[in-house]
Design a protein around this nucleic acid. Structure first.
Lengths: 105, 105
DNA sequence: TCAGTTGTTGGCTATAATGCCAATTAGCAA
DNA sequence: TTGCTAATTGGCATTATAGCCAACAACTGA
């Protein structure tokens, strides 16, 4: 197996790993309904706001959600609408990540 | 959020977590093509056989794969054929787990 | 400016995951 | 039985993850 293939599996695993937590799955489920701010998500989850903020960082770094600050609140929303599709979703996120990287670099 | 809902998210997370590793994703991809024994998977992954065996345990305990011993070899295969579907796949695994539990208990 | 609110980050501890080697189990074949 | 191969399990060290509190940053509004 070449290093390119390995990198592909590592990237896939990162996205899936980002989803592999009850609170983060809950966040994703909530965001399917529409954007929510950290405060709302924190109330729903019932953990410390710092904990929720870190969960959101994980999802953001995996390319699953995006954030937008409006006033005091930071609103989070799904970056990729497909949640019912598994690998096609993972691939779409990876594609989206790649495109975002291309836009930066 | 009630405890039933929490349990549902924990169960989902367990299945996703089982997939959240490059080697395990590779194993799943291989098993889409058909069953394979631990020896074949070990050669492909290039890790110690004990490591691969433990990865397979994780997948088995999550209900993603099943094993069958034939002679010296243990053959692993996908328990749920859908890999392209994400949550529908997770749900199918959970349903399958529940049915298996019902068959035991 | 000052106080209040929302989020993020740093630091810390506790827990879980990873992967190796060594030892063991299980089956096959002389 | 003896030797060989396939796979699992135990033990261990290393690393990653989780979640709390405290501190800080960013914005609002009096």
């Amino acid at each position: 197996m070449d290093s390119k293939t390995q990198a592909r599996y590592r990237a896939r695993a990162k996205v899936i790993k980002a989803m592999a937590h009850p609170s983060r799955l809950l966040i994703i489920d909530q965001l399917i309904e529409g954007e929510q701010c950290v405060f709302e998500l924190t109330e729903m989850i019932g953990a410390d706001k710092s904990t929720v903020s870190k969960h959101l960082s994980v999802l953001r770094e995996a390319g699953i959600v995006q954030d937008e600050k409006r006033g005091l609140q930071v609103y989070y929303s799904l970056r990729v609408p497909c949640i019912t599709n598994f690998f096609s979703c993972v691939e779409a996120v990876l594609k989206s990540n790649t495109e975002a990287q291309g836009a930066i670099g």
